[in-house]
Design a protein around this nucleic acid. Sequence first.
DNA 1: TTTTGAGTTGTTCGA
DNA 2: GTCGAACAACTCAAA
Length: 472
Amino acid sequence: MSTALVLFRRDLRLADNPALHAACSAHDRILPVYVHDPAADGDWAPGAASRWWLHHSLRALDQTLSCQDGRLHIATGDTLTCIRQLCAASGARAVYWSRRYEPAAIAHDSALKAALRADGIEVHSHSGNLWREPWTLATDGGQPYRVFTPFWRRLRAQLPAPTPLPIARARQWLQADGGLPVAALGLLPAIRWDAGMAAQWTPGEAGARELLEIFADDAVNDYAKSRDLPARHGTSRLSPHLHFGEITPVQIHALLQQRAQQAGGASVRTSSPICANSAGANSPTTCSTTSRTRRRRTSTRASMPSLGRRTPPPCSSRWQRGRTGIPLVDAGMRELWHTGWMHNRVRMVVASFLTKNLRQHWHHGARWFWDTLVDADLANNTLGWQWVAGCGADAAPYFRVFNPYLQSAKFDPDAAYLKRWLPELAALPARTLHEAWKNPSALAACGYPAPMVDLAASRQAALAAWESLPSA
DNA sequence: TTTTGAGTTGTTCGA
DNA sequence: GTCGAACAACTCAAA
């Protein structure tokens, strides 16, 4: 009877899980383990929203295992110490896990692998949650792609995509003594602000599958148009499930492809965001510094130099709380606060407002998102903020400053999204909200704050500040 | 090896 | 109201 330990991290699923699949194929008894090891998280410990999600996702995984007469063994402490103890107690001589891709996680896992192998334990790491692992897709010059379109073309040229693996079944799920209940990890907030999140989300593999089925049925045919409309659920909203590995890009692509064939279409236009999500453009310095010479100069101080401002304020609390006086910005920030999520287009708008109009460093915004998003993902969050701030690795025109009024008129024409998140303004006509700068008294009469900054003037100031930077 | 042209989730201005 | 040009920095891939 051979025994293996499977270490779950951000691959909280049984289906299409190569590491788990391999362990179940090669061994008779499987000990499924989650180790809570806060000391290993370093600078980027999960934020409050992510911890909430993790709590519920671990419970869901435990429940799924219990349907197969197994239980998830939960431990807390140093990962290596816990694994050594569990191997000794269970007789496991092999450990399996899915690879992670953040620089700190790679370093941690490399050290873990070396230590376990020195103990004489087999370690098998498998491709994790990505369609393609970052080092398998490069330009002809061997560099990572910096422009999305060539990257996307190359990826698509390599279809057909891999096929998802079936739900893993161990011949016997093993249980070890001393496992903790999920609640013992203290992941839930002390002050229960999470009611809005519980109403919105079902963390776990089953919840992910259900969301995917809905998306495949309703939204995918219209995705190209409706994904940009924040009032509609035109996006898949699978991002937190993807982040925690409850579902994989391969599974998503496979189901959409299948539905498209049933509908008679040749192939499905899978979204570029799903693909970008799987690209994981990590590099050792991405998360703290930026990669472009002229822009790097700006990022060390602020995303825009603070001309005429003696002391840059900390991350604006009005921005955080959705009280800037700019309707689309406030709607987005309140959606984030209540649900742990924000529509992608609105993320760009609120980020542009913080870094361009308020001229604050993108670090401030990235940190706030990190703490409040249920889908907070180091690569996606960091690179998204750099993209907006104009200091990312991609080729963005420096003059791209979003105009929140124009954006809401274009993408939320009937103001359904604005009114959902700004109920105090629900009685006003859509046009009044899209042209709020013309109607300050109408908004003020509803108790809505005046704009904290003049959009046109701050845009000009931001462009002038950029212009004043010396080129590298 | 060097050059050229497309691409880049936007806005504004003027015809 | 619609449309094209301007803003002007940089990467990638084809020539």
